[in-house]
């Protein structure tokens, strides 16, 4: 990453607000006290788009932490990234039906290390002391104002990598040393009883998944808790708004473990609304491979996200070999 870091293009800090301005290919990204502004060339003009700084930083934080995730990460209805697994598109208006039709959209592809290094540099410069882009709004300070310190600890979190199941010897840790989140103070913290015969102590394993989730200190950031070949259980805790509109390059499944999330579902390519899905505890729903989705959770809730990481899936859906819907009935 050091070679990529050397290719990050940034100005000196602004005399007005203290923030640097970044260049990524033909894109220019800047921020002020309230807004992030993105500029790009299209139809012989420089086009621009603005986002509130807090929403932009929350979206970019997920994109970085997820390694650009599966498919599209729409920061809002205009800008976002598409993962080609080794390269990443940064786009403006390309997946907005009206802007694309008008020809004012722009996409540029970057090697993953370059765009990752640029995004991380932006987060390091634009996230102020006291603001945690992973945290629910009521649990963190303000993203706004002139540059004031930094919050490196908050933005350097990464997804927990699990090989089989947390707590197994040599696998990812449990969260026993982390505090229970305020919204899950009523979640039982008991553990399963395991009675292993001699010689099988390391082979029998169980843990309290709800306890584990109750101790998550982040929102909308899945962690793997079970690996069955290419099938990954990635539960997560959700509060306020999923900071991105995730566009699927494969089918994804949601199982609502607790409370309620409402999902806005839209066309992946144009953003046109398709459905509104309300999920309550015990509900199961598929997110098809041709949509984008954004969720809302008032009460902090537990969501079991279930992924299939078979390597060639995006290409098979793209070629039309697989239908976008997981089941015909």
């Amino acid at each position: 990453m050091s070679a990529a870091l050397a290719q990050v293009v940034a100005t000196e800090p602004s005399n007005l607000n203290g923030y640097r301005r970044f260049t990524l290919g033909q894109f220019e990204l800047s921020r002020d006290e309230y807004f992030v502004t993105i500029r790009w060339p299209a139809k012989g003009q420089t086009r621009s788009h603005q986002m509130p700084a807090d929403a932009f930083l929350r979206a970019m934080m997920r994109d970085v932490a997820w390694g650009f995730f599966y498919g599209w990460v729409n920061f809002d209805h205009v800008i976002g990234t598409r993962n080609h697994y080794g390269q990443v598109d940064f786009y403006a208006g390309t997946f907005n039906g009206v802007m694309s039709e008008a020809g004012v959209d722009y996409t540029e592809r970057f090697d993953t290390p370059i765009i990752m290094a640029t995004f991380k540099a932006i987060l390091r410069d634009w996230v102020n002391e006291g603001f945690d882009p992973f945290a629910a709004p009521v649990e963190t300070g303000s993203a706004f104002g002139v540059k004031q310190g930094e919050n490196i600890e908050a933005i350097e979190r990464t997804r927990i990598a699990t090989k089989r199941m947390p707590g197994l010897p040599g696998d990812s840790p449990l969260r026993d040393d982390m505090p229970v989140n305020r919204a899950f103070a009523d979640v039982p913290q008991d553990e399963p009883e395991i009675e292993a015969e001699p010689g099988f102590r390391d082979q029998l394993h169980a843990f309290n998944l709800f306890k584990y989730l109750s101790r998550s200190d982040v929102t909308w950031n899945p962690s793997v808790t079970a690996v069955c070949k290419a099938s990954l259980a990635c539960p997560t805790t959700e509060e306020y708004i999923l900071p991105v509109f995730h566009g699927n390059d494969r089918v994804e499944w949601f199982i609502q473990l607790s409370d309620e999330i409402v999902w806005d579902v839209a066309d992946k390519n144009t953003g046109a609304p398709r459905a509104r899905v309300t999920m309550r505890a015990g509900d199961v729903a598929a997110m098809p491979a041709d949509i984008r989705h954004q969720g809302y959770s008032t009460k902090r809730s537990m969501l079991y996200v279930w992924e299939n990481v078979t390597p060639d899936l995006p290409q098979r859906y793209e070629r039309g070999e697989l239908p976008p819907y997981p089941v015909e009935f």
Binding site: I255, Q256, E260, V265, A272, P273, R274, A275, R276, V277, T278, M279, R280, A281, G282, D283, V284, A285, A286, M287, P288, P324, Y325, P326, V327, F329
Partner: peptide
């Protein structure tokens, strides 16, 4: 348990394969 819902704008509710495990 209280099952949720699918409000369709375009398409078909079947695309979301929506069920409830307790039901």
């Amino acid at each position: 348990y209280q099952k949720g819902s699918v409000e369709i704008v375009t398409g078909d509710a079947r695309h979301y394969v929506f069920s409830n495990i307790f039901e």
